[in-house]
Design a protein around this nucleic acid. Structure first.
Lengths: 258, 258
DNA sequence: ATGTCTTTGTGAACGCGTGCACAAAGATGG
DNA sequence: CCATCTTTGTGCACGCGTTCACAAAGACAT
């Protein structure tokens, strides 16, 4: 998982659990694909397989939205697409600003999935004066000085931060002060925001580290069988070495801040 | 949250809960920052604040790794950096391939956080023959034909998929067949993999949709107070309209597949 | 109209994750 | 050496999320 909600830890809004909300976009995507293939109805079993989840979980998720299925038949694809879209708030237009037009910011500006679900890139903002006016994904980059006016003029409530870590908190503060209440943060920093502001985090480095952990464990388990007998002989000095006083400084690997 | 583990749903590997593993990189980053400022020790309270988590949670997380703290003092920063790095498997070198060198793939190749924690970009792979040989982030792009040999020659076990959704499953299958056992997927698709292969997903579109949901709810709550009296008069026809037979087709918003 | 068969919707049990609150441990000062 | 004070490590309870398993609902054929 590349994220973690920062605020509103267990806010089950109007009865819809957070975990369910996180899966609704998944269902929506699968349903949209079915809709394009003109499939009229789908069973919970089929849809669950397409979305990669348990069918019981899917049914319980849908039960929070209401009784939209027909027993013995399944769910009407078009109707469900509409209901989920409405529940997620995708029936309205969401202007979004992207701050920090480096490699990642440019990639986000070009990302089709943004524009395709009601999200409209209202502006691209960068601190580098040399970037100003340069078009990225057909949209001219604007300077940070205009951040506040852009937010207000376009009624932007969602901001995307793709700046270096050092600039993220400052940008965040300005976004919030200008009226943004939801932030998607790609910078590897913990953002502090006032109550009422939602922050979601996408951290590429963290994802890889989690994969590395499991990868290491897999490698360890493979080797475990042959070392089991040997491990019994060794008095556990190898793994837990020198946990007594001070950590070895020379052994510390070259770990740099992401 | 930008991800969701696909396989190994609740695998508490060697006793370390999945939720804890997901937070270790967060602690590591905060600790590395302290280390650079030559801070010798840190209390759970301070570190928790820096990582944006509860201090009790942090202490419990560390207790899974062992008793590395000193009561009345706190944790030795350098030692903890080393222990967490080792636990996460960052003391070894992880060669990584990135498949799909579009905007996003290029951004990933240039992303500093990859190389800085033991992850080495072993190769960039793209299906477009025109890209072959072109250097991105100082690394020449190679053609998809060479995928298998690259994986085997470099002993790659972690693959990053940044291709369009349509190509993702096929790329995934080839990666897995060639020996990759951990995949970080940026394509908006559900990947199916055999047992033993870990998939983590980063989905930019989903993150925005979750934010939109909360944003909509916030807006709805603001307006709720003034509409409460009015809502009582309206016989609930507005919200749940025509939930009887068929969903309105004309009303369905223009939702495209991400 | 009635029976059968499919599929939904949900009650209930279970397990994981979180946070409180406190006892144990050890540093520090006298 | 003893008292005090700080901070860790953890037992415990609670709540959310997941899954099972089944009764209710409705389609469909006869």
């Amino acid at each position: 998982m590349a994220t973690g909600r920062t605020h509103r830890p267990a806010t089950r809004s109007r009865g819809i659990p957070e975990a369910t909300v996180a899966r609704l976009p998944l269902y929506l995507r699968a349903l949209t694909a079915l809709s394009e293939r003109s499939v009229p109805t789908v069973s919970s079993e089929e849809l669950a397989a397409a979305a990669g989840v348990n069918s019981a979980k899917l049914r319980k998720d849908f039960s929070y939205l209401g009784s939209y299925g027909t027993r013995g038949v399944g769910y009407d694809v078009e109707y469900l697409v509409y209901q989920i879209s409405r529940e997620l708030g995708l029936t309205q237009d969401w202007p979004v600003v992207i701050v920090g037009i480096g490699n990642l910011g440019a990639a986000l500006a070009n990302y089709g999935g943004f524009a395709s679900r009601g999200f409209r890139v209202a502006a691209l903002i960068d601190a580098d004066p040399a970037m100003a006016g340069k078009p990225v994904a057909g949209i001219p980059v604007q300077h940070t000085d205009e951040l506040e006016s852009i937010i207000r003029d376009n009624g932007v409530s969602i901001g995307v931060i793709a700046t270096p870590a050092g600039a993220a908190q400052q940008v965040c503060d300005r976004l919030v002060a200008a009226g943004v209440t939801s932030i998607l943060n790609f910078a590897p920093t913990v953002l502090s925001v006032p109550d009422g502001v939602d922050v979601r985090k996408v951290d590429l480095s963290i994802e890889l580290q989690i994969l590395a952990f499991h990868e290491q464990r897999k490698a360890g388990e493979e080797a475990a069988a042959e070392v089991t007998a040997q491990a019994a002989a060794v008095p556990a000095t190898t793994r837990e070495e020198s946990a007594t006083d001070q950590g070895p400084d020379g052994d510390v690997p070259a770990v740099m801040p992401a």
